[in-house]
Measured scan of single mutants.
Amino acid sequence: MGMPNRKYADGEVVMGRWPGSVLYYEVQVTSYDDASHLYTVKYKDGTELALKESDIRLQS
């Protein structure tokens, strides 16, 4: 078993793309699913969504 190939840690605050949009919002990573390679993130309004790594970026 190798290390999970994840870029962002639980609790890390990053920018997540809103689905169907080009806009990124501040989100907190809450979990990562090794099987689906999706991150569960929480937006400031409390919305929780699963995002692909390509829809997440570090805060500038």
Score class of each variant (00 low, 15 high):
19 P>I: 03
9 A>E: 09
7 K>M: 10
46 G>L: 04
48 E>N: 08
5 N>L: 10
49 L>V: 11
25 Y>L: 10
24 Y>M: 06
36 S>G: 06
48 E>H: 10
52 K>Y: 12
19 P>F: 05
35 A>K: 13
10 D>K: 05
19 P>N: 06
51 L>T: 02
23 L>K: 12
58 L>C: 12
41 V>H: 01
39 Y>W: 02
14 V>S: 01
13 V>N: 08
10 D>P: 08
11 G>I: 02
23 L>T: 12
41 V>L: 04
6 R>D: 02
23 L>F: 14
2 G>F: 03
58 L>K: 15
57 R>F: 11
30 T>W: 07
59 Q>M: 14
12 E>S: 08
15 M>Q: 08
26 E>R: 07
52 K>S: 12
60 S>I: 12
25 Y>P: 01
11 G>M: 05
39 Y>M: 02
44 K>Y: 11
51 L>M: 10
35 A>F: 12
50 A>Q: 14
33 D>H: 05
45 D>F: 04
34 D>T: 09
39 Y>H: 02
20 G>F: 06
47 T>Q: 09
53 E>Q: 06
5 N>V: 13
9 A>P: 07
21 S>Q: 09
16 G>W: 03
3 M>P: 15
16 G>M: 07
17 R>F: 03
7 K>C: 07
26 E>W: 08
7 K>S: 06
58 L>P: 14
35 A>G: 10
10 D>Y: 05
60 S>T: 14
41 V>Q: 00
17 R>Y: 02
19 P>W: 05
35 A>H: 11
12 E>M: 15
38 L>Y: 11
36 S>E: 10
52 K>Q: 12
45 D>S: 05
21 S>D: 07
24 Y>G: 01
13 V>T: 11
26 E>F: 07
23 L>Q: 12
35 A>M: 13
53 E>W: 04
58 L>A: 15
36 S>I: 04
34 D>K: 06
43 Y>P: 01
50 A>P: 08
24 Y>C: 05
6 R>N: 05
37 H>Q: 15
51 L>K: 00
55 D>K: 02
21 S>P: 01
59 Q>C: 15
38 L>R: 09
24 Y>L: 05
23 L>G: 11
26 E>M: 09
36 S>D: 08
58 L>Y: 14
34 D>R: 03
17 R>D: 00
29 V>R: 00
47 T>L: 08
41 V>F: 00
1 M>R: 13
31 S>H: 11
50 A>L: 15
22 V>L: 15
56 I>N: 01
53 E>F: 04
25 Y>G: 04
20 G>A: 05
53 E>P: 06
42 K>G: 03
55 D>H: 07
4 P>S: 08
36 S>L: 13
49 L>Y: 13
48 E>V: 13
52 K>H: 13
43 Y>E: 03
26 E>P: 12
52 K>G: 10
32 Y>D: 00
49 L>W: 15
22 V>P: 12
38 L>P: 00
20 G>H: 07
29 V>K: 00
52 K>R: 13
2 G>L: 07
3 M>Y: 14
38 L>W: 08
21 S>G: 10
54 S>H: 11
5 N>D: 15
55 D>S: 05
18 W>R: 10
12 E>R: 04
40 T>R: 10
57 R>Q: 11
44 K>W: 14
60 S>V: 12
59 Q>V: 14
41 V>G: 02
36 S>N: 13
1 M>E: 15
44 K>T: 09
53 E>L: 04
29 V>Q: 00
23 L>C: 15
25 Y>I: 11
45 D>Y: 03
34 D>H: 08
17 R>Q: 05
29 V>M: 00
7 K>V: 09
56 I>C: 02
46 G>C: 06
43 Y>H: 09
26 E>V: 11
3 M>I: 13
12 E>P: 01
20 G>I: 02
51 L>N: 00
39 Y>K: 01
9 A>S: 10
26 E>K: 08
4 P>N: 12
54 S>L: 06
28 Q>G: 02
60 S>D: 14
29 V>D: 00
13 V>Y: 13
52 K>N: 10
56 I>M: 11
43 Y>N: 08
22 V>F: 12
57 R>W: 10
9 A>H: 11
55 D>W: 05
57 R>M: 14
53 E>R: 02
29 V>N: 00
59 Q>W: 11
60 S>K: 13
5 N>Y: 08
37 H>R: 10
46 G>D: 05
45 D>I: 03
16 G>V: 14
42 K>C: 09
30 T>H: 09
25 Y>A: 08
21 S>A: 07
59 Q>N: 12
47 T>H: 06
22 V>T: 14
31 S>N: 11
7 K>G: 03
52 K>E: 12
55 D>F: 04
44 K>F: 10
56 I>L: 13
55 D>R: 02
16 G>T: 08
48 E>D: 06
51 L>F: 02
50 A>M: 15
32 Y>R: 01
20 G>N: 10
36 S>V: 08
7 K>W: 03
6 R>E: 02
31 S>P: 00
15 M>R: 06
1 M>I: 15
51 L>R: 01
55 D>Q: 07
21 S>T: 14
54 S>R: 07
48 E>Y: 12
3 M>T: 15
9 A>L: 11
32 Y>F: 10
30 T>G: 05
45 D>K: 02
18 W>T: 07
17 R>G: 02
33 D>S: 07
36 S>H: 09
55 D>Y: 04
21 S>F: 04
60 S>N: 14
8 Y>C: 03
41 V>P: 01
42 K>F: 07
10 D>T: 09
24 Y>P: 01
35 A>D: 12
27 V>F: 13
45 D>R: 02
13 V>I: 15
11 G>H: 06
27 V>G: 10
60 S>F: 10
20 G>S: 05
15 M>K: 04
15 M>I: 07
27 V>E: 00
18 W>L: 11
1 M>K: 15
6 R>F: 02
46 G>P: 00
20 G>Y: 06
14 V>L: 07
49 L>A: 10
2 G>Y: 03
21 S>L: 05
37 H>M: 14
28 Q>W: 09
25 Y>H: 09
41 V>T: 03
57 R>G: 07
55 D>M: 06
3 M>F: 12
7 K>N: 05
51 L>A: 02
7 K>I: 11
59 Q>H: 14
41 V>D: 01
60 S>P: 13
6 R>H: 05
29 V>W: 01
41 V>I: 03
6 R>S: 03
34 D>G: 08
59 Q>D: 12
56 I>Q: 00
15 M>G: 03
55 D>T: 02
2 G>R: 01
11 G>S: 04
12 E>G: 02
43 Y>I: 07
38 L>F: 10
9 A>I: 08
40 T>S: 08
27 V>T: 03
37 H>G: 15
58 L>V: 13
51 L>E: 00
20 G>P: 09
47 T>I: 09
24 Y>S: 02
52 K>D: 10
16 G>R: 01
2 G>M: 04
33 D>T: 03
23 L>W: 11
51 L>Q: 02
16 G>E: 00
1 M>L: 12
28 Q>M: 14
40 T>F: 10
5 N>G: 14
12 E>V: 08
37 H>V: 04
56 I>F: 03
47 T>S: 09
7 K>P: 04
8 Y>N: 01
16 G>A: 15
18 W>M: 09
15 M>P: 01
41 V>K: 00
59 Q>I: 14
47 T>Y: 08
31 S>F: 08
47 T>A: 06
23 L>A: 10
26 E>D: 05
37 H>F: 11
16 G>K: 01
32 Y>I: 01
15 M>F: 12
39 Y>D: 01
46 G>H: 04
10 D>A: 06
26 E>L: 10
3 M>G: 15
14 V>F: 02
38 L>Q: 09
5 N>I: 14
22 V>E: 15
36 S>Q: 10
14 V>Q: 01
54 S>N: 11
3 M>W: 11
30 T>L: 14
13 V>G: 03
17 R>M: 07
11 G>C: 07
46 G>E: 06
39 Y>I: 02
59 Q>P: 14
56 I>G: 01
26 E>A: 08
22 V>A: 13
2 G>D: 15
21 S>C: 09
30 T>N: 06
38 L>T: 13
35 A>L: 12
9 A>V: 09
21 S>E: 07
21 S>N: 06
21 S>V: 04
12 E>K: 06
60 S>A: 13
24 Y>E: 05
11 G>F: 06
19 P>V: 03
49 L>K: 08
30 T>I: 15
49 L>M: 11
39 Y>G: 01
29 V>I: 14
27 V>M: 12
41 V>W: 00
2 G>A: 06
26 E>C: 11
19 P>G: 06
53 E>V: 06
32 Y>C: 02
57 R>S: 09
55 D>P: 00
